[in-house]
């Protein structure tokens, strides 16, 4: 294996959480998530030469992953009827891990109903990007990023509430 390829795969492995987060936010079934993950890695490899180390690899990777997810459309799997799973029940005990899992399950279920750009805004917000940084990544003004993010968060909140979870 060439050293460039080795270096690339090592960087991907150490930042794989980014790809998983993006794929789970944009696609709802494991098959579609796997397709998107492959597409992201392919696009990252194709653009790897343009990574100039002016920013961290994870920042660059986030940008490529998001831009890929924005224009990724699921395969037409007509024969498979995907049924929406009901949200998990409230954990009976006060197990913090179970509570976190439940919160994430509600989040991922609700986030599927957002528009593509809204998903990108929420994703970057959860990654602690400032409004300015979100605007810079998406190519919109800081003010517009703030307004759009606020609307997306409000929408997400309503969706989670509709699923019967307190927000």
């Amino acid at each position: 294996m060439k050293s460039k390829e080795k270096e690339f795969l090592a960087l991907i492995t150490s930042n794989k959480g980014i790809i998983r987060k993006v794929s789970r936010t944009y696609m709802d079934t494991p098959d579609d998530q796997a397709d998107l993950e492959q597409e992201i890695i392919y696009q990252l490899w194709k653009s790897f030469d343009s990574f100039q180390q002016q920013s961290s690899f994870s920042t660059w990777m986030y940008r490529v992953a998001l831009n890929t997810a924005l224009v990724f459309f699921k395969k037409d799997r007509r024969k498979i009827i995907v049924q929406e799973e009901p949200p998990p029940d409230m954990p009976s005990d006060e197990n913090p891990t179970a509570v976190k899992e439940l919160q994430l399950a509600h989040f991922y279920r609700a986030v599927q109903k957002l528009e593509r750009i809204e998903k990108a805004l929420v994703l970057l917000h959860l990654e602690n990007y400032s409004h300015k940084e979100i605007g810079e990544n998406l190519g919109i003004s800081e003010g517009n990023a703030r307004i759009k993010l606020s609307r997306a968060k409000e929408k997400l909140k309503t969706l989670i509430k509709q699923q019967g979870y307190e927000f």
Binding site: L9, Q38, E39, W45, F72, K74
Partner: peptide, 19 residues
Amino acid sequence: ENEKLRVPASIDQLKSAQL
């Protein structure tokens, strides 16, 4: 779950499909 990504063993296994 974030760590459960299967990174391909080599680049040759990659192909673009859905863009």
